[in-house]
């Protein structure tokens, strides 16, 4: 079994890492010096978000018409900078009349939720509540 350790508690760094990690996926883990996690999280979230946008997925706005739209917005906003740049990345906008657009909507939402999980992990690491093996980056 791998030997585990906890990181020292640093609330300010934890909060900074959470905000940075939300804005730019992986940046929070860069601040925490978890290099391998930062690279993997950025590549995974960026790939899903960009493919979702290029497939012309729907990006939900804050003025939601119903609860499902609000859930979609909460998932999408997790993408951070990719949410704010979605109009620039895909200027043509959403087209969910085709299956590809529907898949794109799900991929973009998944990217947001994954990034929110990464933000929660950055908070855990910063607050010293996550045990990590020595092999962890």
């Amino acid at each position: 079994m791998a030997e585990t350790r906890k990181n020292p508690i640093n609330p300010a760094l934890a909060l900074a890492a959470a905000v940075a990690g939300w804005l730019v996926p992986g940046l929070g883990h860069v601040l925490l010096r978890k290099w391998d996690k930062a690279v993997v999280y950025f590549l995974a979230v960026a790939t899903l978000a960009l493919v979702g946008l290029w497939m012309r997925g729907n990006v939900f706005s804050s003025n939601a018409a119903d609860a499902f739209d609000m859930l979609g917005f909460l998932a999408d906003i997790g993408n951070g900078i990719f949410y704010f740049l979605s109009g620039t990345i895909n200027p043509a906008g959403a087209d969910v009349s085709k299956a590809a657009g529907d898949y794109g909507t799900r991929m973009f939402a998944t990217a947001g939720v994954l990034n929110l999980l990464c933000v929660l992990e950055a908070l855990q690491i910063g607050f010293g509540s996550k045990e990590e093996g020595h092999a962890a980056g």
């Binding site: 791998a2 585990t4 391998d36 996690k37 993997v40 999280y41 590549l43 995974a44 979230v45 790939t47 899903l48 493919v51 991929m107 998944t110 990217a111 994954l114 999980l117 990464c118 992990e121 045990e131 990590e132 093996g133 092999a135 962890a136």
Partner: peptide, 17 residues
Amino acid sequence: IFALAVSLVFAFLSKNT
């Protein structure tokens, strides 16, 4: 693409070595 990205993130979130 979906499976690869999600699998990688889950692996790095839940495993240490």
